[in-house]
Design a protein around this nucleic acid. Structure first.
Length: 254
DNA sequence: ATGGCAATACCCTATTGA
């Protein structure tokens, strides 16, 4: 069984890459972030034709998420129950015996910005909802673009990020709080190449110089953890013409 | 050594991303 997450940075632009990727990587489910499409513009037919069921939840210009699965997903939830949000950032569904949650965490922009206040409140809301969700679904995976680099080794230059978002103690405390709920970072269950990242800035030859961040994550519940056999980042996607700035992350389970 | 991007909306320059 395989699950994946990918921030596509506009599904309108990245749809051909997604279809090609699904053909080459027949995962059981994948969650997408930053589709940047209103619901009426979502390319459901092309995704169905590729062999996937899909639920989506979007808005114009920003955000937007989707859950694709080979078998139909049940009990779909959009955004965080109990946290009123104007932005389309989360979608959940049950695929087989696993509760799959796909999320596009807020960026935060700057530590002193209103957007950072929103990021903290959103994370509070996520944790509260997730705690109850995990009680109802022992086999659960939370994946997406977390916009948090959990450790210094997840950032190409930790010193340069001091005072900025993505690596701040506040954000890392929130990431740890998710782990404390009983979740495990699937990527770190295995030995990985040093300087492994999932996002590289389009500017400054970020990818060519491997100046990146590992901010796209797959967290698994205790019940799911023993089934995990691999977790990888598909860097190849970042090498294509017109790439997303994020690479897909894939987890394999027994 | 430095700086180098992309997508969207709306009206061609601004905003946002991370």
């Amino acid at each position: 069984m395989k699950f994946a997450t990918w921030n596509v940075n506009s599904l309108a632009v990245r749809l051909p890459q997604l279809i090609d990727w699904l053909n080459a990587n027949p995962v059981d489910a994948i969650v997408l972030q930053e589709t940047k499409l209103t619901d009426d513009k979502f390319p459901a037919q092309a995704i169905n034709d590729a062999g996937y069921q899909v639920h989506w939840f979007g808005q114009k210009t920003y955000n937007g998420v989707a859950l694709l699965s080979r078998t139909p997903a049940q009990d779909i939830v959009k955004n965080i129950t109990g946290y009123a949000d104007e932005q389309a950032r989360l979608i959940a569904g049950t695929v087989g015996d696993v509760r799959v949650i796909g999320a596009y965490f807020p960026n935060g922009q700057a530590l002193d910005s209103d957007k950072f206040v929103y990021k903290m409140a959103w994370l509070d809301g996520l944790r509260a909802w997730l705690a109850s969700e995990m009680q109802q679904h022992k086999q659960l995976v939370l994946m997406g673009d977390f916009n948090i680099a959990p450790e210094d080794r997840d950032c190409y230059d930790p010193a340069a990020f001091v005072g900025q978002t993505h690596t701040s103690p506040q954000e890392r405390a929130h990431f740890q709080a998710l782990l404390d709920l009983g979740l495990t970072d699937a990527y770190r269950m295995f030995e990985q190449p040093p300087k492994s990242y999932s996002w590289w800035d389009y500017r400054m030859l970020g990818f060519q110089k491997n100046k990146g961040l590992r901010i796209d994550h797959i967290l698994v519940s205790e019940a799911l953890k023993p089934r995990v056999t691999a977790c990888t980042i598909d860097r190849q996607m970042r090498k294509l013409p017109k790439p997303s700035d994020h690479a897909p992350v894939i987890v394999t389970l027994d």
